[in-house]
Every structure is written in structure tokens, then in C-alpha cells.
């Protein structure tokens, strides 16, 4: 173990991180090895999440501005249960960045990142408590997604009045969360490969 540390230290002292030089020394590269199968699977789920975002943008909003189903969260919930929080975080972040770049604007991206990050943190923590099913987890995720967006909106617009909109968004987050959670549970149960 100590020799490993010393070797990696000397590699760091050389300045440039060179995988091939480390391979020559018979060391594993300092990077965590990426499982190709998993990488491919996560890429597929990222594209599924992106398509879901796109499909959702095609569905007209039902009277309540800002209320969305968060269909892409189905993919995130699925990955959270099938793989783990790291994978879910990666897919969620990549999805938000790509969708914002393709279909959205920079302000929309900031809202989305705030919502997605807060929602992911809440979902991961709730899942770890092992108290709730995927429905409870995704309900909390949906509500915290809206809360994160409202918080950023209040900060960026410099107005607290927008917080008055929160009750509506809590209810819409609950409804969306139930639908997403049920879809996610069905997928986790039946999608085998």
C-alpha cells in the first residue's frame, strides 16, 4: 500500500498525468476504470431522459404555468434504483446540460440545474433512509425540484412575491411525483436485460 502511494506520488511529481507511462510501470491508472457496458447503458438512459424532456415540451401546460410532469425524472428514478446515486447524478446533469443547450436558453438552464440538483439530493437522501417507496422518493423529488426553481427565480428576479406561487407548485409536484414514481417502480420491477 505504501509503495503504491510512493509510486503515485512520483508519478504526480512528473507533472503530467500519463496513463500510458503508468501502464508501463505496471500500475493501474489513477482513474477509476469505466465499465463499458455500464457506460453504454447509462448513455441509452441519458438519451431516453432527453427524449422524455422533449416529449414533455410538446405537451401543452395544463393551465398552471411552470407545472410540469418531469417525465425525465422517470429515467433518473430508474437509474437511482437500478445503479446508484452517482450514476443518477451523472445522467441527470448530462441530461439537463444537453437539453438546455439543444432546446433551451441559459436562464432556463440555471433553473433546470437548480431544480435537478436539489431534487436529486433530496431523492438520494430519502432513498438512503429506506423509509419510502419510489413513489415517496419521487414525490419529494418533484416538490423539491419546484422549490429549487422558485428559490433561484426569487434570487434572480429579486422578488419574494414569486414564493406565493409555491403552494400551487407543491401540489403539482406531488401529482407529478406520484405519476413518475409509479412509472419508475414499474420499470424497476419489469425491465430486465
Amino acid at each position: 500500500m505504501k509503495t503504491m502511494d510512493e509510486k503515485s506520488k512520483s508519478a504526480a511529481n512528473e507533472g503530467v498525468f500519463n496513463i500510458s507511462s503508468e501502464r508501463k510501470k505496471g500500475l493501474k491508472p489513477n482513474l477509476k476504470r469505466i465499465n463499458t457496458k455500464k457506460l453504454a447503458e447509462l448513455s441509452v438512459f441519458t438519451s431516453v431522459a432527453m427524449i422524455l424532456s422533449y416529449v414533455e415540451a410538446l405537451i401543452p401546460s395544463v393551465g398552471i404555468p411552470g407545472a410540469k410532469l418531469g417525465l425525465a425524472n422517470i429515467a433518473v428514478i430508474f437509474i437511482l434504483y437500478r445503479f446508484g446515486w452517482r450514476e443518477a447524478a451523472a445522467v441527470s446533469l448530462v441530461r439537463v446540460l444537453l437539453v438546455s443547450l439543444l432546446f433551451g436558453s441559459i436562464p432556463a438552464m440555471i433553473y433546470s440545474i437548480a431544480g435537478a440538483t436539489l431534487s436529486l439530493i433530496v431523492m438520494v437522501l430519502l432513498k438512503r433512509t429506506d423509509t419510502f417507496s419510489s413513489v415517496g422518493v419521487s414525490v419529494a423529488g418533484g416538490v423539491s425540484h419546484n422549490a429549487g426553481q422558485i428559490a433561484v427565480a426569487a434570487f434572480m428576479l429579486g422578488t419574494k412575491e414569486i414564493a406565493y406561487y409555491m403552494p400551487v407548485l407543491i401540489i403539482s409536484g406531488i401529482i407529478a411525483g406520484i405519476i413518475v414514481g409509479l412509472c419508475g417502480a414499474v420499470l424497476v420491477k419489469y425491465v430486465k436485460y
Binding site: 417507496s133 415517496g136 414525490v139 409555491m166 406531488i174 406520484i178
Partner: peptide, 22 residues
């Protein structure tokens, strides 16, 4: 599963109460 469903329902009721309170 039953315990989790109860926890889910409790969470949803709590959130609705928070919305109504707000």
C-alpha cells in the same frame, strides 16, 4: 412494502398540509 406505502402517504399528506399552510 406496506410500511413504505404508509410512509409515502404520510409524506404526501405532510406536503399537502404545508401547501395549504403556505
Amino acid at each position: 412494502k406496506k410500511q413504505k406505502v404508509i410512509a409515502d402517504v404520510a409524506l404526501i399528506i405532510l406536503l399537502i398540509a404545508a401547501a395549504v399552510g403556505a
